[in-house]
Design a protein around this nucleic acid. Structure first.
Length: 106
DNA sequence: ATCTTGACCTAAT
DNA sequence: CATTAGGCCAAGA
């Protein structure tokens, strides 16, 4: 077995997110064993731009708000991506968020 | 090696 | 309602 860094674990989980679903930083952090390490998850997302195909647009904060939409190329790219997957986004917030929520442990 | 920042979360003041 | 503080991990200066 190989020891995986926090980032690798995050990538693995995020990549497992099914289309049309979203998850939260906290959920991922908790899944990794550190419910308070959500910041590191966000930091991993930042690095994901230069790594693999990480659907960072499927990761939002606990409120279902697209906090990281500012880090994407455009300004509505994240919204459009989610919309493209059938997720309704309004005012940087996901509608029926809990309905689209996907648990990494699930 | 130390300090600051970062796409967070929660509680407290 | 706004701000602060603590917690976690990683990267840059």
């Amino acid at each position: 077995m190989k020891e995986q860094s926090f980032f690798e674990r995050v990538y693995k989980v995020v990549k497992k997110i099914p289309a049309g679903k979203v998850t939260t930083y906290g959920a991922i952090a908790k899944f990794l064993g550190s419910p308070s390490s959500s910041r590191t998850v966000g930091w991993a997302m930042n690095a994901s731009h230069d790594n693999k195909n990480i659907p960072a647009h499927r990761v939002v904060n606990r409120n279902g708000v697209l906090t990281g939409k500012h880090h994407f190329y455009g300004t509505d790219l994240m919204e459009q991506l989610l919309n493209n997957e059938g997720i309704e986004v309004k005012n940087n917030t996901i509608i029926n968020f809990k309905n689209h929520f996907w648990d990494p442990n699930s």
